[in-house]
Amino acid sequence: MADVLVCVKRVPDITEEVVLSEDGLSVDGRRSGFTMSAHEECAVELAVQATAASGGQATVMTIGDAEAVEQLRNALAVGCTAATHVLGEPFAFGPADVASEIAAVVRDHEAEGRSHDLVLLGNDAADSGDFQVGIRLAYELGRPVVNGASTVVIEDSPEGPVVVAVGEGPEGQETYRVTLPAVVTIREGGVEPRYPSVPGRLKAKKVPIEERQPVAEPKGGGRVKMTLPPPTPSAVTILGEGPAAASAVVDVFEKLGVLAK
């Protein structure tokens, strides 16, 4: 039976324009709405799959403000079975702060008899893009870490349970086999995150969420301020809509001389 902890972050859902807070220290998501990154959605799915098979717990956790409970409920609605909310302003926490807070949750749960054999995180958070929380967490916990895997499967071995993690490396697909406990960061692409069902949502509402305070005052990540790049004016010529535009497209190919008889 495997027990998995998956770490998610509430981030602004940027598909259009990015707006910064007045102090330039965070992205203002009030207009765009909030989500978790695609990497983390895949990590949640993998946590649910890995525990569903064995009957273990999939616990989701976040460090975030009161509203971040939305992301926890969403993860519960797709199959996580427990949730922990560390209440704090996420942009005040640098990657090392986040790693220490996650490590504290792992240790405290372990002391209560719930050992998170596998901790899954995203490869990088969609807003701060620090690319390091999972690795720092591994050192805090003294565990091995695989970075940027797209699938994970827990298997039994003579040495005890192992996680088999597969990801894209510079020379092809790479496979790791690591004895648990371990940390793995996930890159999207290996699994299709499921949509929550109505019963799933109802069930999620009833799960009690463990709330806790940060164990330490955050030191921050060295951010001075954020800025936006200047907008680029568009000069596009729309050739048309749908298959009807084919003729205009091939006219352009002829004009550019990219076709050969």
Binding site: V18, D127, S128, G129, G222, V224, P229
Partner: peptide, 12 residues
């Protein structure tokens, strides 16, 4: 680059 390249961050 932060926010998937949509914003920049000055960092110490």
């Amino acid at each position: 680059q932060v926010v998937g390249g949509a914003a920049m961050e000055e960092m110490n």
